[in-house]
Design a protein around this nucleic acid. Structure first.
Lengths: 160, 160
DNA sequence: CGTATTTAGTACGAACGCGTACAATATGAT
DNA sequence: ATCATATTGTACGCGTTCGTACTAAATACG
């Protein structure tokens, strides 16, 4: 048993704290735009597309389908998206931005990126790239160790 | 306007994906132990202490007090913690592990760390330390840019 | 002393998030 | 063609998360 057994804990703790700090920073801005974070993610995903089914939206936004149903319900109620039955696959639903949704996307998407940009600009290009690589390494390690017998939805194979 | 304006997006996306991968990996193991992630966090925080009030637990676990009430309710219902009124401060509640909670903590805490250890061991000590530093840089940048007029509970000053 | 402010915890509503179960449709093997 | 199996989306329950409002107790201030 090495004496350094749990020296990963500070990194782990920092990962959680940083993610939560980002989520709070991003989410509070999105809230001022009248959306929640998952709702914004869906709008951002559907922007500049001809629509897609729930499965694809789930892969892009990292939401499980059960969660997505409720988010789409609320977006549909706000009149920002439309659900029509898929022309060729009877199981699928084609989700698309409504005109109001398109308008919101145009108004809100780049505004939010502009809100985030200065935060990351402070780190510098090389630090950002190194950080991304290390996070990716960690994620791959997590995915490798995941129990393969669990047959929940599997995002580990797709690299988008 | 630089052409590299939004080159932070891959890093941002990787942060979210990696955090979610960790959360899924850790959470699915905790679930097999009969707890949820926040419940485990509270048990782990109270382990090897003489108890603390809700404010301190919230700071350690990064939960807002409103959230904590519900988590503590369920832990109390399971008989894992006890709530007694604070001897000197009439506003406070002293939260402590019950004997059953102590037993669970002893059984579950190191088991969970042992489950996480090999994932992080793959990265190596230096990578882990660099990753931690970069995440910390990003978090500080986020906290610096946060709107100071928002008067929600402020964890930005404590460094534990 | 008495009032104002701060602090600790709870109550409540809305929205996630996940696991499980389920109905409807596709797909594949024989 | 038929039957087993897989995929798509929804329904539902439990637990969490946040924001806001509220009560009670402690502290500060005049």
């Amino acid at each position: 048993m090495p004496a350094t057994r749990f020296e990963f804990l500070p990194t782990l703790r920092e990962l959680v704290r940083t993610y939560q700090a980002f989520d709070a920073f991003s989410g509070s801005h999105i809230r001022t735009l009248g959306l929640t974070t998952p709702q914004f993610d869906v709008i951002a995903t559907l922007g500049n597309t001809q629509g897609m089914n729930c499965r694809d939206i789930g892969q892009k936004t990292l939401m499980v389908k059960g969660t997505l149903t409720g988010v789409l319900d609320r977006l549909e109620q706000k009149g920002l998206i439309t659900r029509i039955s898929h022309p060729t696959d009877g199981r699928s639903t084609l989700v698309r931005l409504s005109p109001a949704g398109e308008e919101l996307f145009a108004r809100v998407f780049s505004a939010h990126l502009a809100h985030l940009e200065p935060v990351f600009a402070l780190l510098g290009r090389e630090t950002l790239e190194t950080l991304r690589q290390h996070l990716e390494q960690l994620r791959h390690s997590l995915e490798k160790q995941s129990d393969p017998s669990s047959d929940q939805e599997d995002f580990s194979r797709e690299r988008r």
